[in-house]
Amino acid sequence: MQDPDFQPPVNPLPPVVTLTFIAIAGVEAGLSLGEAGLIGGPGAVGWRLGLIRDYGFSGQIFDWMMGNGVWPFTEVIRAITYPFIHLGFTHALFAMVLLLALGKLVAEAMGQLTFAAIFVTASAGGAVLYAVLLDDPAWLVGAYPGVYGLIGGYSFVMWRQLAGTGTQQYRAFSLIAFLMGIQLIWGVFFEVGTQWVAELIGFFLGFGLCFLLAPGEWARVRDSLRRR
């Protein structure tokens, strides 16, 4: 018989967040173990590069598809698969930590379907607009555009909460401002590439999507349009 007053030491994660985390962690675990020589034999060293080539997002491939009007599924799906491949263990670790923290908040505040919609839309939209805006031959990999979409969802939740308390709403954007500031400072000393463009796009897509998917927001927008 279960004690009704029992509280688990760790709050359970919404299943969709857990599944997304397991997918990213599983891929990284296999790649890291292969690079360490623990599984796969000598050929495992090249697994990561092989996955990036086969499932990473390439702006050049997208430009070719757009220019020729040809959209093979094996190439289009890259906009969905690239978030599950990372450049290394540390690259994946930070993404997974942010995914767990922000994903839990977004899924609990707005629902698991909203979490999934934000993560997928921010990932795919961030990649596509990255390819349209830039001409960077570097491959895009990693969950960060999707995670930044979740930061957008988190910022939306805070923005609405601060509006309800009469507090200045700009404070809701302190997290994205801090992260972009770190990117700027880091870029002064090191070559950081252009992936931050996809991440920033992911943030705006995640924030904007909340106006349609957050509980009660669509009705709020509809009522506002009617009043006009």
Results as ranks from 00 to 15, higher is better:
Trp196Leu: 04
Ile201Leu: 09
Phe178Val: 13
Asp136Ser: 06
Glu199Arg: 01
Leu93Lys: 07
Ala107Gly: 08
Gly34Phe: 09
Gly103Glu: 00
Leu150Arg: 00
Gly149Ile: 00
Ala92Asp: 02
Val106Ile: 07
Ser58Pro: 06
Phe203Met: 00
Pro4His: 10
Leu113Val: 12
Pro9Ser: 14
Val76Ala: 06
Asp223Glu: 14
Ala79Lys: 01
Thr90Pro: 08
Met158Tyr: 07
Ser174Asp: 11
Phe211Gln: 07
Phe211Ala: 10
Met66Gln: 14
Glu108Asp: 12
Thr90Cys: 06
Val188Pro: 01
Thr121Pro: 03
Ala95Pro: 05
Trp64Tyr: 14
Gly67Asn: 14
Gln2Ala: 15
Tyr82Lys: 03
Val106Gly: 00
Leu213Gly: 07
Gly88Arg: 07
Gln195Ile: 01
Ala124Asp: 00
Ala109Glu: 09
Val141Ser: 02
Gly59Phe: 00
Gly153Asp: 02
Val132Gln: 10
Phe94Cys: 04
Glu199Pro: 05
Asn11Gln: 15
Gly43Ser: 13
Arg227Asn: 11
Met1Leu: 13
Thr165Met: 11
Ser224His: 15
Ser32Glu: 09
Ala117Glu: 08
Asp5Arg: 15
Met66Cys: 10
Leu209Asn: 08
Val221Tyr: 12
Ala79Gly: 09
Phe178Trp: 13
Ile176Arg: 05
Gln2Met: 14
Pro145Ala: 04
Ala36Ser: 12
Glu35Thr: 06
Trp139Val: 07
Glu35Trp: 10
Leu87His: 09
Pro137Asp: 06
Ala107Lys: 01
